[in-house]
Amino acid sequence: MNVSASPYTIDEVMHWLSQVPDPEIPVLSVVDLGLIRDVAWDGRACVVTITPTYSGCPAMQEISADIKNTLLAHGIEQVRIETRLAPAWTTDWMTPKGHEALRGFGIAPPGEKAIDVSGITRRAAGVVVPCPLCGSSHTRLISHFGSTSCKALYRCSDCREPFDYFKAH
């Protein structure tokens, strides 16, 4: 790696990355989602290492292309995206700003640490997911899956509105 050849600082690159939106949930940036593991320079190439979210998430390809195009548009000559699988992506890596953005968008953010989510035990009681619209904690799970793999469908028993919950993962 030749640091002196890199025309921009890592902070500058991170700032640009923080403006690349998730294609499904545009209020979240790829940084807020916790996808970015590393940014480094390899000669004149900027190497961005990302951790994919869900195995089958169709947005990952688009996200890689968006990252590349954004950095090229800021004048970086070469961009290389590398994928790192382990440790697996977790919603624990989402930023507090990301949580706020989700709530503002009408999606309840992950309500617990994801450390034990790979357990097999049925969680009938489950975690309380406050309604992002009225704040009530009288909500119930309607469906384990919502419009995308990362979300479940809930309904608020007070304001009666259905809403998405971004699952702890």
Partner: peptide, 27 residues
């Protein structure tokens, strides 16, 4: 084999959710 371990670790989180769901439905 760390390549196998990495894919398994990622898949496990998804599959833990699958089990909880199919266990729920069967009940």
């Amino acid at each position: 084999d760390e390549r196998v371990a990495a894919i398994a670790g990622k898949s496990l989180k998804e599959v833990g959710y699958h089990v909880r769901r199919s266990s729920d439905i069967i009940v």
